[in-house]
Design a binder for these strands. Structure first.
Lengths: 199, 199
DNA sequence: AACAATATTTGACACGGCGTCAAAAATGTG
DNA sequence: CACATTTTTGACGCCGTGTCAAATATTGTT
């Protein structure tokens, strides 16, 4: 059989970069094809559809991103871990010029329908999955904090709260583009969450 | 001059309903034209562009929504006001079947670029404006809470924190569609914010 | 009452994006 | 060398946005 003339992973990276910068619906397969030096038809042959291409590209990103989150959460005091978590999160969404925002949040609001209409339910699941994984990781870190006396409270509720704030930050980034404000909110959140701690 | 054959406000309501259900990019002017019994060209003549039509429809919604938020924040203890605020917010984003989510958050992530790329900067400003108004209102309520001894903390930081959580809830609604979870988070947030209060 | 001025409606058009298809091209295999 | 298989390539249909000119309906003027 005829060999493929392009690198699968290169295309995924190039595609995700465009999706991230211009949004999923704002990026055409022609754009990606031009950037990747591939014919548009080849993309359909290789991935099937725009949504499937996005999904593949997103999952590539998600595993890398999750790894960086886990690294940030993996050492130091609880306060240090949470601060590092927000640093990575905010750094990610404010990177680029202009800033590209959080691809998970952007993609979710652009493609996800909470139920039915099910056009892009696979994408929705992928986004929800990353959020769940992060929340679970946060909960584990908070539980460890309880065990060490660094934190008093419900790890489950608190992890969910922090995850919610994280998503809110992604929205505020789009609205105001003010990284300083995001960092203030993050810092205030850490203080609030740790207020009852070791006091 | 020839009189218009359709009601401006009716079209705005019909259009916003579609935008809300199917997203801005997922709604075509043909859809709206059919639903509103108007020719597509008439919409362009009356509003200029799809974005302008959305903007007009959104601003109609925003003023109504802001009024309902202000009502919720206007009576009772601080705890009661914040609870009512979250009730209205969550009720709004979970209404409809399937739930339509928060139109501000959805629209912002779909259209807004934090900077440059400036295609839809007017829309971004409209979304940011509503968020700012709500935050200002929250801050005023919290300041009043401080004056009455119901709350100890920074009204500014706390208002921003609550606004952030609100946006995060809108994202989680899309991801999981679990209204109960949203209410738990809201309740936990109120507890957290009021933890230092009147104790 | 006829007519000009003005705004709206209507249908056709260009352009671009998504997705499909068949034909052409490039490899491995008997 | 001929065959099977997969990828590439270019053409097509469909739909969405936005523009335009011609047709239509109303108001104001003479």
């Amino acid at each position: 059989m005829r060999p493929r003339e392009f690198d699968h992973d290169d295309v995924l990276r190039i595609a995700f970069d465009q999706f991230w910068r211009k949004g999923v619906r704002g990026t055409s397969l022609s754009d990606i094809a031009r950037d990747a030096d591939v014919q548009r038809g080849s993309l359909y042959n290789a991935f099937g559809s725009k949504e499937a291409l996005f999904l593949a590209a997103y999952e590539r990103y998600a595993s890398e991103y999750l790894a960086s989150i886990e690294k940030a959460l993996s050492s130091g005091s609880l306060r240090r871990r949470l601060t590092a978590f927000f640093d990575v999160t905010i750094g990610n969404m404010c990177a680029g010029s202009p800033p590209r925002g959080c691809p998970t949040t952007r993609g979710l609001m652009e493609l996800g329908s909470a139920e039915g209409e099910g056009l892009d339910d696979n994408a929705r699941r992928a986004f929800a999955d990353l959020m769940t994984r992060i929340t679970v990781r946060l909960e584990a870190v908070l539980s460890a904090g309880v065990a060490r006396g660094e934190f008093k409270g419900s790890p489950k509720c608190t992890a969910l709260h922090i995850a919610t704030v994280t998503r809110g930050l992604a929205v505020l980034e789009r609205a105001f583009g003010d990284e300083g404000k995001l960092r203030e909110i993050a810092s205030h959140t850490v203080d609030l969450v740790l207020a009852k701690a070791s006091g």
